[in-house]
């Protein structure tokens, strides 16, 4: 287990991100280092504007850091191609489903783009993924406009997982879901993490999700990762942001869940 856990999936070294605007440059990341290992569920936490989503986008190669190196599965992320879906799956905050396609076509899209596999195989594989995320086959021909928020997230997750990528990135996976759907979605993610052996990186503000799923929490503040580790270690770290974030009323309530006995986190 230790051997597998030490396998690096994402490696970020000396990353600088600078946003240029009229009133001068705004440094978002200053010499940021972060390493993500196989099988982890890493949560990125930080206040608004600390560049959590930007970091995800840099891991995906959608944005380029001003300085520093990002490597995903041993290669620079900009090399993602049509086969990128086989390496990294991304769940965008609002799903980013193609509104012109039906649910099934959305999920099957990365496979269809290979222009190799037979249609039946693609359809069956997409239907399997649809049901793996807890939606029945009767939803296959619905259009994204006809789906509820929770269903959009599930379909988007199915699309992200269609090629079984080893790395899954989630941007606010439970934002905009009611508590029950949010719990359902967490359970779904935990099950998929277990079944598929995924490495998950997520940005979340939802403390329940955070404590429920993460095997490691990385806190972004002061333009870098100030601390990363298990929930208990992170909370113990002396920093005003961590104090406000975790030890406020919200945090106290969510942390009660931590002290309740719970099945050990899978994979660790």
């Amino acid at each position: 287990m230790t051997e597998a856990a030490s396998e690096v999936v994402v490696d970020i070294r000396g990353l600088w991100t600078v946003f240029e605007n009229d009133r001068g440059d705004q440094v978002v990341h200053r010499d940021l280092d972060l390493t993500i290992y196989r099988g982890e569920v890493l949560s990125l936490v930080g206040g608004s504007g600390t560049g959590k989503t930007v970091l995800l986008r840099q891991i995906l190669g959608l944005e380029h850091p001003d300085k520093g190196v990002v490597s995903v599965l041993g290669a620079p992320p900009a090399e993602l191609s049509a086969k990128g879906a086989a390496r990294v799956g991304m769940l965008f905050q609002h799903g980013a489903l193609f509104s012109a396609f039906s649910v099934l076509d959305n999920i099957a899209f990365p496979l269809r783009e290979l222009k190799l596999l037979p249609r039946d195989l693609i359809r069956d594989a997409a239907l399997v993924k649809l049901q793996m995320v807890g939606l029945g086959p009767e939803h296959a021909y619905k259009m994204p406009a006809d789906l509820s928020g929770g269903m959009i997230k599930r379909v988007a997750l199915a699309r992200a997982l269609i090629m079984d990528p080893p790395l899954l990135l989630l941007d606010e996976p439970t934002a905009g879901l009611d508590p029950e759907s949010s719990d359902d979605f967490c359970n779904l993610l935990r099950r998929l993490h277990q079944d598929l052996g995924l490495t998950v990186v997520m940005v979340t503000h939802d403390l329940d999700t955070l404590f429920d799923l993460s095997t490691r929490i990385a806190v972004l503040a002061d333009q870098r990762v100030i601390v990363s580790g298990e929930a208990r270690d992170v909370i113990a770290y002396p920093h005003p942001f961590i104090h406000d974030y975790f030890l406020g009323g919200r945090g106290q309530r969510a942390m009660e869940a931590l002290h309740e006995p719970r099945a050990p986190a899978p994979g660790l």
């Binding site: 287990m1 099988g39 599965l73 041993g74 080893p166 993490h193 079944d195 899978p266 994979g267």
Partner: peptide, 15 residues
């Protein structure tokens, strides 16, 4: 069953 164990080599093959 630990998740990493069933797929000892699930890193995609490099070119």
């Amino acid at each position: 069953m630990p998740p990493a164990a069933p797929r000892p080599e699930s890193l995609p093959a490099s070119p």
